[in-house]
């Protein structure tokens, strides 16, 4: 341990049992104060990623072995190579891109509508007594219902076409955005509102300078929930009466027992979820740079 003894941690006094026999007192060599040098941190991070990848690599190897040794039927679980070939075929024929585009448009449209509605409702209820009375209790009531349970009703109302799929995504997205943004607006520090008063800020300026930036972290938390839930709802919506989309591709594959294509579809969904989560994290980092604890002076 090379940490200099400059960080006496008075909060954790040495327990008598832990004192060395020679009577000397060891002061404050606490791992929490030991920060590795940037270069070391980079190496450690690479090692971390490497060890994180180890698990999936082992699974892949076992999968490959199982297929090569014919431990499982290729109908149930085709070899990794077969799945890869299926993916290449789908890309070459353009089927994957086509259906991916349809899925993306559904997800993004639903997300866009849901985010706009959720944020607008949250602003209305967060900023006015009337909104709180009229809307909040209703929203709180509806949100305890699993959104997918609304599917039969939405199909009866809007048919089995695109609007139903987009609407389901939008509905599912609205609630996390609304709830998190609403809570964040309510939690905006009243001391800042007081400050705004002494600076003569009008209502609009107060909203723009204090309420919106103050509620942004909550909104972004809602956004993260929203993106992950949007894929979940889309998967279900796309497997019913769809004529295009990744879910449709997988349903079609099921009817002809193309397990490899089903696995390709799953991989695409996983990638989509990963990419959208990364995007939201990037947005978060950018938008909340003022609160970043990592920022150097």
């Amino acid at each position: 341990m090379s940490a200099p003894p400059t960080a006496p941690s008075s909060a954790h006094p040495a327990h008598p049992d832990q004192l060395p026999a020679d009577g000397s007192v060891r002061v404050g060599i606490d791992d929490r104060f030991h920060r590795p040098a940037p270069r070391a941190a980079g190496v450690r991070r690479a090692a971390q990623i490497g060890s994180r990848a180890l698990g999936p690599l082992i699974v892949l190897a076992v999968w490959w072995l199982a297929a090569a040794q014919s431990w499982v039927s290729p109908i149930l679980l085709p070899a990794p190579g077969t799945v890869w070939d299926a993916a290449v075929d789908l890309v070459v024929s353009g089927k994957l891109q086509e259906n991916l585009a349809v899925s993306l448009v559904r997800a993004l449209t639903g997300l866009g509508i849901g985010i706009a509605v959720g944020a607008a409702l949250a602003l209305f209820t967060g900023l006015s007594k009337a909104g709180e009375v009229l809307i909040d209790s209703n929203v709180q009531m509806i949100r305890s219902m699993p959104i997918l349970a609304l599917q039969p009703l939405v199909i009866v109302w809007f048919g089995i076409g695109e609007p139903t799929k987009v609407l389901l995504v939008a509905l599912a997205v609205t609630f996390p955005v609304y709830i998190n943004t609403h809570a964040a607006i309510r939690a905006v520090d009243s001391r800042f509102v007081e400050l705004a008063t002494t600076r003569g800020l009008g209502r609009l300026a107060l909203i723009r300078r204090v309420v919106l930036p103050g509620a942004l972290p909550g909104f972004l938390t809602g956004l993260r929930f929203a993106t992950s839930i949007s894929w979940l709802v889309l998967v279900v919506a796309e497997q019913i009466n769809a004529t295009a989309g990744i879910g449709y591709l997988m349903t079609q594959a099921r009817t002809v027992a193309r397990t490899d294509v089903i696995l390709v579809g799953l991989a695409v969904y996983a990638l989509l979820g990963l990419v959208s989560d990364t995007l939201v994290r990037l947005i978060e980092r950018k938008a909340l740079s003022w609160s970043s604890t990592l920022q150097a002076r």
């Binding site: 400050l195 705004a196 600076r199 800020l201 300078r209 204090v210 930036p213 003022w290």
Partner: peptide, 14 residues
């Protein structure tokens, strides 16, 4: 305001 830089903070409302 933690989300505003120093100068905009000084200028708040002006």
């Amino acid at each position: 305001l933690p989300w505003a830089r120093v100068l905009p903070n000084v200028l708040l409302g002006l």
